[in-house]
Amino acid sequence: MVKKQEIIKAESKEFNFHYADGTHALKDINIPLYEKRITALIGPSGCGKSTFLRSFNRMHDLYPGNKYAGQIILYPDNTNILDKKVDPIEVRMRISMVFQKPNPFPKSIYENVAYGLRVRGENNKRLLDDKVEEALKGASLWNEVKDRLQDLAYNLSGGQQQRLCIARALATDPEIMLFDEPTSALDPIATVNIEELMSELKKKLTILIVTHNMQQAARISDYTAYMYLGKMIEFDETDIIFTNPSKKETEDYITGKFG
C-alpha cells in the first residue's frame, strides 16, 4: 500500500494523550509522516486531530497537567520528542508550526520573520537580511512587502498575515512544518495561495496539516489519516482514502453521510 521508496521522517507509536481535566483525547495513535510529503489529518470537530498536531511541537507543555504517553519518534536521529528528557524548546527548534488564526507579533514584518533566528541568538544583520528575504520569497510574500519591511505586521491583510506566519516558521529551516487549519480564517483566494505554497514547500520539508476541509486534504496531501473520537480510524495514500477507503466509517465521513 505504501510505495517502497518513501522515507519515514517521523512516526507516532501507541501515542496517548490526556488533558489536565482527565479527557483521554488521543488513543493509541500510530501515524507515520513521510519525508517531503504532505500528510493531512481529517475528521469531525473534537476528534483529536489538532491535539495530535500540537503534540508534535509540545504545545501542550504550556498548560500544566497535560500528559503524553507512547512515542513520537523523529528520524534520522531516533529522538522520542515526547521524552521528558527532551527539551520542548529543542523540539520546537526543529519542528515549526503555523496556527489556525494568523498570529503575527506586534512587530515589523521584518522582525516577525527574523524572530526565530533572533531566538536562536543570531544577530548578524547580513545573514538575517538574507534569511528574511529567502523566507518571504519561500512564502510568496516578498514581492508584496519588500518595500515596507519595517511596517507593522498588523497592517497586512489576513491572507498576507498567514503567509507571514509561514515565512516566520520557514526562516529557521525546520525539518517538519505543522499547519493547524491554516486557511480556516481566510477567504478563498488567500486559501488557494496558501495551498499552492504548501505544494511548493513539500519539495524541501515534511508537512503535517489539520484541515476541516476535505477537498483541501484531497487537493494537496499525499497521505491522509481519518480520525474519530480520539482514534485513528484509517491511514493511507490520499487517493485511496478518497476513492476506495477500506473502513466503512471513513467512507461515511468522506461521502458526507456523517460529520
Binding site: F99, V119, T172
Partner: peptide, 19 residues
C-alpha cells in the same frame, strides 16, 4: 495565540516575555 506563536518558534519564557 501570540505566546504560542513565540513558543512554537523555540523561544524560552524569558524571550517570549521580553520580546
Amino acid at each position: 495565540a501570540m505566546r504560542e506563536g513565540s513558543y512554537a518558534m523555540g523561544a524560552t519564557r524569558f524571550q517570549t516575555a521580553k520580546t
